[in-house]
Design a protein around this nucleic acid. Structure first.
Length: 871
RNA sequence: GGGGGAUUAGCUCAGUUGGCUAGAGCGCUUGCAUGGCAUGCAAGAGGUCACCGGUUCGACUCCGGUAUUCUCCA
């Protein structure tokens, strides 16, 4: 059975049990401060379990893209070493939201594994929660009894709270779970060691494949548990492991999920994958695993970056590069070649990659190149260090500096060191690393207080599409403390405040409690909750409150948001439909729009785009906003964004059905004419294949144009209102250059004349050609010039020039090389010992030429005499 | 968000206790050589040393700030 068949059978099976199949949510998580990436199938259903939202279907199944790069068994550095852990993986899951419970879940999982997938029953083990006295929890007898219908009792194992009781977080829904493990060892080994002793014991051949969670409790603040009125089922089965088991492979990497990329890597490197534990084979696995994580996160809109989620992608990509660089002897970008292979493989499951394959490839290529350059310069740096080292060792501080400042991986440092029989102080490195981590942690410490709940119903309704103010009440609030600054977060029963989302910034405004006015500085989303940020609490938080947004800011933001839609459509019209939104910022001042495009947008194209947008503004198109099923919206040709999660009912913003139809939750104006005017303020690049446009609308656009006009007016005035200002300025610049050149020639001539006259005044002192003069000079540089002009005219020389420049003494002394060698005369010595004290200053230079300066300019003649006297 | 670097010619980079007429390689221009090309030889152009302020007789160099960028951590 092929992997796609196995996936399809899972979905078909649960359809036959009355489940609705939903698409995978994006792998990159938005609006959840506790999570960077989707790490479990249930993430997208969190609100259902929390009761923040009612589920649209009671039975759901899907395959979910997940990413795990930290945690006990999923340390990034471990992936590829073994045969069954991954960064990105697919999680197959089925859910019941207050519908079926333990019996069905257990029956169906058994049926699917043994009847459909035909796994041998005697190789399966199940675990059941054994109970926990401290929590006053009983053994999950129900689950045990249901399993007994299918599995002999000696293969039903009891598990403790750590393995068999699942909690979403510190508080919230939780419950016992039941895992299914499979023993893949050969029969001889199974005869020797009983499989049940190896369950949950980190044996690579005895692995968990499916976890069924039965949510029946709610964990309260005080750590106590209460029964949930509605009980849920939440399951997750690792797709890669399942396929491996069904296909009877020794390793996940031997399945057809990974074999395509591995074969392609073999072709590119002319090496062979052997499936062993040696470094070369580890490298093959690392690449096969990491390329998936890289591609799907980029396709979901997360570009490599140096903070947050983007930094995680960058680290994964760099780890892959490190492995092919060190162990596959590849010094050129390789990963990007695998992107089309992967896109093809997943075209039917996760089409977003295939749809953006050129873009993803380009981003990966640039990122690889970038890191290879970093490696290159790091290697130069480390070789440089070893070349100058007195001992054959690299201290921890240096190793850490290479890593921390120059991004050079520690394992490469240690590898290169070993090749040159250098040792590395690993302890010192670790210590420096720990210091860095502690510092960072201390700086980001965020003290988040408990919610104080005033109203048990946590639902929070947004009324800001229609209203700019409303009377409501606070449902809960809490204190947060970040970097010594105290703030409060409030949640209202109803709110006109728009929470930052889809690039549109959160509203600001005021909350009035009994006449006490509190300023809202920002509004953000936490999952589906709208959180208002304020600097202080009112005297009485329980009274009714008038919530009022800053209307002017909202209006300007709204103008910019509508303009963003017009711009997006115009970009696709002029540049092509490959243009996809990669980022957007909409605030009261301006709009910023990042999109995929591979070339600079030319001035002509920009003008054309701007024209189209302004044309649409003048056409005063009514903006129609409708809610409709997603399928219907897609039929209208609505633009949806990659990496954005949409519900089944979507909000559609239409500005002429033939021009712009977008799924959007933001605020918009009534008709495009309200925008007044649209002007670009800048165009540039932000990353490989991503361009950024900034623009202004309405009053801001007018201000912008007026400023530009004023500037032009000022320029014209500055050049006496010349008829052709551009030509006048060009002439001015040309003339200036010509004059500068002339001036230079004249000054050189002047110095030449001075030199010539000085040449006549050379004296013989002790067989030395001595020339010492106090001269007029405009700068210390001129004295230097004099010396260098004359040095070729006079041999066997000591040249000394002094000048009073702006009240300060400046001296230049030149001694011909032969005198330096023969008589031991050294310019810096003379400067420091004989001249500097006279002029109250200092100086130095090289043996044949040195300069000095000082505060006392009255002693210049004595300087000359002093030097002359010592010859 | 916190730490550490970097910013010098069109590009890649040197510049060693503050004083070297700011350099190298590649590229560019011109000339010469070779039947042509790859190329070789020679000459030359090209720099507000990111920006602003400070210390100093003197700052590419030291100090502070700003901008941009790289990098590590969270």
């Amino acid at each position: 059975m092929t992997a796609p068949e196995i996936r399809q059978q899972f979905l078909d099976f649960f359809v036959s049990k009355g489940h609705h199949i939903v698409p995978s949510s994006p792998i990159v998580v938005k609006n959840d401060p506790t999570l960077l990436f989707t790490n479990a199938g249930m993430n997208q259903f969190k609100d259902y379990f929390l009761g923040n939202r009612a589920p649209a279907w009671k039975r759901v199944a899907d395959t979910q893209k997940c990413l795990r790069v930290s945690g006990k068994h999923n340390d990034l550095e471990e992936v590829g070493i073994d045969t069954y852990h991954h960064t990105m993986f697919e999680m197959l899951g089925n859910w019941s939201f207050g519908d079926y419970f333990k019996k069905e879940a257990i029956d169906w999982s058994w049926e699917l594994l043994t009847e459909v997938y035909k796994l041998p029953k005697d190789r399966l083990y199940v675990t059941v929660f054994e109970g926990d006295a401290k929590e006053n929890l009983e053994k999950d007898q129900e689950a045990f009894d249901f399993w007994k219908q299918h599995v002999p009792e000696d293969r039903i194992l009891m598990g403790n709270k750590k393995d068999n009781f699942w909690e979403m977080g510190d508080t919230g829904p939780c419950g016992p779970c039941s895992e299914i493990h499979v023993d893949c060892r050969p029969d001889e080994e199974r005869a020797k060691v009983d499989g049940k002793t190896l369950v949950n014991a980190d044996n690579p051949q005895v692995i968990e494949i499916w976890n069924n969670v039965f949510m029946q409790f709610n964990r309260l603040k005080d750590r106590s548990l209460e029964s949930l009125p509605a009980k849920h089922v939440d399951t997750g089965m690792g797709f890669e492991r399942l396929v491996r088991v069904i296909q009877g492979k020794f390793s996940n990497y031997d399945t057809d999920i990974f074999s395509g990329t591995i074969q392609h890597t073999e072709q590119l490197t002319h090496l062979k994958y052997g499936g062993t534990d040696n470094k070369q084979d580890v490298a093959f696995r690392v690449i096969a695993d990491h390329i998936r994580a890289i591609c799907f996160t980029i396709a979901d809109g997360q570009l490599p970056a140096n903070t947050g989620a983007g930094y995680v992608i960058r680290r994964i990509l760099r780890r892959a590069v490190r492995y092919y660089f060190s162990f596959l002897e590849q010094k050129k970008p390789l990963l990007h070649e695998l992107v089309p292979v992967l896109a093809q493989q997943f075209a039917n499951v996760f089409p977003e990659l295939q749809q953006q394959v050129d873009f993803v490839k380009k981003v990966v290529f640039e990122e690889e190149n970038n890191f290879l350059r970093t490696l290159d310069s790091g290697i130069r740096r480390i070789e440089d260090f070893m070349g100058n080292a007195k001992q054959k060792s690299i201290d921890g501080r240096t190793a850490f500096e290479l890593y921390d400042t120059y991004g050079f991986p520690y394992d490469l440092t240690s590898l290169i060191a070993a090749e040159n029989s250098f040792s590395v102080d690993e302890k010192g490195f670790e210590a420096a690393m720990k210091e860095q981590k502690d510092r960072s942690r201390a700086a980001t410490e965020l003290d988040m207080g408990d919610w104080t709940i005033l109203d048990e119903n946590p639902a929070s309704t947004f009324v800001g599409y229609e209203l700019s103010e409303t009377h409501t009440s606070v449902t809960k609030y809490r204190k947060i403390k970040a970097k010594g600054k105290e703030q409060y977060q409030l949640v209202l029963a109803q709110t006109p405040f728009y929470a930052e989302s889809g690039g549109q910034v959160g509203d600001t405004g005021t909350l009035s409690f009994n006449g006490e006015s509190i300023t809202v500085t920002d509004t953000k989303k936490e999952n589906n909750l709208i959180v208002h940020f304020v600097d202080k609490l009112p005297a009485d938080v329980t009274t009714s409150v008038k919530a009022e947004i800053n209307r002017n800011n909202r209006l300007n933001t709204t103008l910019n948001h509508s303009a963003t839609h017009l711009l997006h459509a115009a970009l696709r019209q002029v540049l092509g439909t490959h243009v996809a939104q990669k980022g957007s910022l909409v605030n009261p001042e301006y709009l910023r729009f990042d999109f995929s495009h591979f070339a600079k947008v030319t001035d002509e194209e920009l003008a054309q785009i701007e024209d189209i947008v302004n044309e649409k503004i003048r056409a005063n198109i009514p903006v129609v906003i409708k809610e409709m099923p997603k399928d219907e919206a897609m039929q209208l040709g609505a633009m949806a964004l990659f990496g954005e999660k949409y519900g089944d009912v979507v909000r559609v913003v239409i500005m002429d059905p033939a021009y712009s139809v977008e799924l959007c939750g933001g605020t918009h104006i009534g008709a495009t004419g309200e925008l007044g005017l649209f002007k670009f303020t800048s165009e540039g690049a932000v990353a490989a294949g991503v361009r950024r446009i900034e623009a202004v609308t309405g009053g801001n656009a007018l201000t912008f144009v007026n400023e530009q006009l004023q500037q032009l007016k000022d320029i014209k005035a500055a050049i006496k209102n010349a008829k052709e200002p551009v030509k006048a300025i060009e002439t001015l610049i040309q003339d200036k250059a010509a004059l500068e050149k002339q001036l230079e020639v004249l000054e050189q001539e002047k110095v030449r004349q001075l030199s010539a006259s000085l040449l006549q005044q050379v004296e013989q002192v002790n067989g030395i050609n001595f020339l010492g003069k106090v001269v007029e000079a405009g700068s210390a540089d001129a004295l230097k010039q004099l010396c260098f002009n004359l040095k070729n005219e006079i041999s066997n020389h000591v040249l000394l020039f002094a000048a009073n420049i702006a009240g300060k003494a400046n001296v230049a002394l030149m001694i011909s090389d032969n005198l330096v060698a023969e008589k031991g005369l050294e310019a810096p010595k003379i400067i420091k010992e004989k001249i500097a004290p006279l002029i109250k200053g200092g100086g130095g230079g090289q043996k044949s030429f040195a300069t000095a300066g000082g505060q006392e300019a009255g002693q210049l003649q004595q300087v000359i005499a002093q030097v002359k006297g010592m010859l």
